[in-house]
Design a protein around this nucleic acid. Structure first.
Length: 409
RNA sequence: CGGGGGGUAGCGCAGUCUGGCUAGCGCGCAACGUUCGGGACGUUGAGGUCAUGGGUUCGAGUCCCAUCCUCCCGACCA
């Protein structure tokens, strides 16, 4: 893709609204555009990253046999009255009336709706177990939106729901999901911890949270520098007895055993092998996808910009063409790389070299290729690794070998 | 919802305290020329409801009142 033809307009100055690294760099790098407090548009670069994360999630969810669906964004308030959560969530819900004065909300989460949908189709143990998921925008009228995508009023969430015949089935599903969540976060390049948590107003009797350590985190965990473990509660380390220190954490995922709270409220019952009518046993599994982006950017950056992990970067390679006459060679190199399924952003702009270098660092693609004087003289390409700033000087063959190895192609 | 900042060109800001000529600067943008491997330079130019509404005054970006927006801290947070 050509930089000159892309909707990438980086800002030279730090945006004023953003006080944290992730929001500052995502806005500065033209990944996001702020529309209102807690409301952001994903620009093409941001959309690329978002889709990469979504596809990682899809791959892992599908590997569990979960099926993707998309529930409606508008939810009639009656749905919420069935569980009483219209009161629990209160003002956090965006509520409004349609032209016939019927009250709706913009979905803040979807336990009610998924149960409403599933109950219509499930009537036998033979149809279970079942897991459905969606990647959908959720709406919450936050009292205080902050830190860009960290806490916003409109955000992308992956929510999955499992349906089992009993607690044992749920336990198995839950265990698998927990393991898959760890795979997802690992693949996204995050360092995270898994902790047992309270289930809060979700109901149910077990839950785990997935947390990333960062200064802008809104949750607190206690960290033992002796053994490296994290704990929910303060007190000396139960494992090695050393003192614990407070760490701020970003919650990127949360999974719950719901039990039968929602199935009972919605009359989601099935007949078991013996013909006994039983409520479906449910679990729900959430990932804050947009918050995940914030967490990745927040924990993978330096003073120059973002350092995207290879798995989620908008492009694999930024190719800086510093001599206009080298454009044809750059295009043919890019074609070769694209055939290896490596996505190349060719900086073909008529800009000073420094501008291209700085933008490449800001955008944070993992590898930066430079075609300029050195290439004219030696036919060798300079490669700079964004993360380590290590520089290599390679001929085309060596370069392709290097990248094939990096991406396992 | 409480406390504290802020709102002036696309972006970042000065000017407001102490009211006074035609509202400035940097970046970006357009044109021309010179540059060309780590955010170059010169010349010229376009771009403004000074957040909004009301008030005081001969005169308001500047003073007063109200409202809106926004950032940070706190409360809240599946």
């Amino acid at each position: 893709m050509l930089f000159s033809k892309s909707f990438i307009f980086t800002q030279r100055e730090d945006p004023k609204v953003a006080e944290c690294n992730s929001a500052r760099l995502l806005l500065k790098g033209c990944f996001l555009s702020m529309i209102s407090s807690g409301v952001y548009s994903y620009l093409p670069l941001g959309k690329r990253v978002l889709e990469k994360v979504n596809n990682i999630i899809r791959k892992h969810m599908n590997s569990l046999g979960a099926e993707e669906l998309q529930l409606s964004y508008l939810q009639p308030i009656e749905m919420w009255e069935k569980t009483g959560r219209d009161k629990d969530l209160g003002d956090i819900m965006f509520r409004f009336k349609d032209r016939r004065a019927r009250e709706f909300v913009l979905g803040p989460t979807a336990e009610e709706e998924i149960t409403e949908v599933v109950r219509k189709y499930i009537s036998s143990y033979k149809q279970l177990p079942l897991t459905l998921y969606q990647i959908q925008t959720k709406f919450r009228d936050e009292p205080r939106a902050r830190f860009g995508l960290m806490r916003s009023c409109e955000f992308v969430m992956k929510d999955a729901y499992s349906f089992d015949i009993d607690e044992q089935g749920l336990g198995e599903n839950y265990k698998k999901m927990l393991a898959v969540y760890q795979d997802i976060f690992k693949e996204c390049g995050l360092e995270f911890v898994t902790v047992e948590a309270d289930s809060g107003f979700m109901g149910g009797d077990a839950s785990h949270e997935f947390m990333v350590s960062a200064g802008i985190g809104e949750d607190i965990l206690f960290y033992c520098c002796g053994c490296g473990s994290y704990f929910k509660k303060e007190g000396n380390c139960p494992q090695c007895g050393k003192n614990l220190e407070e760490k701020r954490m970003i919650e990127i995922g949360h999974i719950f055993k719901l039990g039968t709270k929602y199935s009972q409220a919605f009359d989601a019952f099935f007949l078991d092998r013996e013909g006994v009518r039983k409520p479906i046993t449910m679990g729900c599994y959430g990932i804050g996808v947009s918050r995940l982006l914030a967490a990745i950017a927040e924990t993978n950056c330096d003073d120059k910009g973002i350092i995207w992990p290879k798995s989620v970067s908008p492009f694999d390679i930024s190719l800086l063409v510093l001599e206009e006459k080298l454009l044809p060679q750059a295009f043919s190199l890019s074609e070769i790389l694209e055939k290896l399924k490596l996505h190349v952003l060719i900086d073909d702009r008529k800009e000073a070299a420094g501008v291209k270098f700085n933008d490449a660092f800001l955008l944070g693609n993992p590898f930066i290729l430079i075609m300029g004087k050195n290439y004219l003289n030696s036919k060798k390409i300079d490669l700079e690794i964004r993360k380590t700033r290590k520089k290599l000087n390679l001929n085309e063959e060596e370069l392709i070998k290097f990248l094939k190895n990096e991406y396992g192609r």
